[in-house]
Computed example of a mutant assay.
Amino acid sequence: MVLSRAEKVQRHIMEEMSAQGLAAGQRLPSVRQLAEDCQVTTPTVREALRALEAAGVVELRHGSGTYVHPHAFRFVRANTLMVPTLSQCRELVEARVIIEPPIAAEAARHRSEDDLRALEECAECAINAQLPDDHVSFHVLVAQATGNDALVDVVEGLLSIRKQAHAASRAFITDREQDRAQHRRIAGAIRRSDPVMAEQLMRDHLQWLATCSDR
């Protein structure tokens, strides 16, 4: 496959970020420096950076420069511009029922004490109708407890695709005590290192959430 000049610049930037071990928030070389490194014009570099920004790899700060985005090294990327249809939303719920229970089982096998504390604290938040903007989903925390970044990316991707639908679905959960109780039971199974129970409880929970949103 023949790459365009902008695509070659994108690849160069990604390779340099990896080779230099750049972390989220660190600044990239200037547009002029990148143009010299890649032997292209500055408009070509800007085109490449806009594409990387759209992909969630870099963050362009006007008057400051280009920085590594917090999600730059995700294995799986969600299309945040996508507006899913009702049929697609249902398929995504079905996908979560298939994908997340085994993740809960893995969490039970690999969780740390820090993971358990985060899960148990988050489980209590299920009682709240509104959650803060910086709230980390219980389901993402379960994935984090596996220690597998690819699984975290998958769950975050599924939730970000359904961000608006997910927020709306919380309005249908009238029994928040039940929601919290289910989260507590899942966290409890993970604490006991019981993968079979963690998997079953997560499946039951997701199926219950699906019935709530269908009402």
Rank of each mutant, 00 (worst) to 15 (best):
9 V>L: 00
18 S>Q: 14
19 A>R: 15
19 A>S: 12
27 R>I: 08
30 S>T: 07
32 R>H: 15
34 L>G: 11
34 L>P: 10
37 D>Y: 10
38 C>Q: 07
38 C>M: 08
39 Q>P: 04
40 V>M: 06
40 V>Y: 04
46 R>C: 08
53 E>C: 01
56 G>H: 01
60 L>Q: 13
66 T>P: 09
68 V>N: 02
69 H>W: 06
72 A>G: 00
79 N>A: 05
80 T>S: 09
80 T>V: 15
82 M>F: 15
83 V>M: 05
86 L>V: 12
90 R>P: 06
92 L>F: 10
92 L>I: 11
92 L>P: 00
94 E>P: 14
94 E>W: 15
97 V>D: 12
100 E>C: 02
103 I>T: 06
104 A>P: 00
104 A>D: 04
112 S>P: 03
113 E>K: 09
116 L>N: 06
117 R>W: 13
126 A>G: 15
141 L>V: 00
142 V>T: 13
144 Q>D: 10
149 D>V: 05
150 A>R: 10
152 V>P: 03
153 D>A: 07
162 R>M: 15
166 H>K: 10
166 H>R: 11
169 S>W: 00
174 T>M: 15
176 R>T: 02
176 R>W: 09
177 E>D: 12
178 Q>V: 08
179 D>F: 07
181 A>C: 07
181 A>L: 11
181 A>V: 06
185 R>I: 06
195 P>V: 01
200 Q>K: 12
201 L>V: 03
201 L>H: 00
202 M>H: 00
202 M>R: 00
204 D>M: 11
206 L>K: 02
207 Q>C: 13
207 Q>M: 10
209 L>H: 08
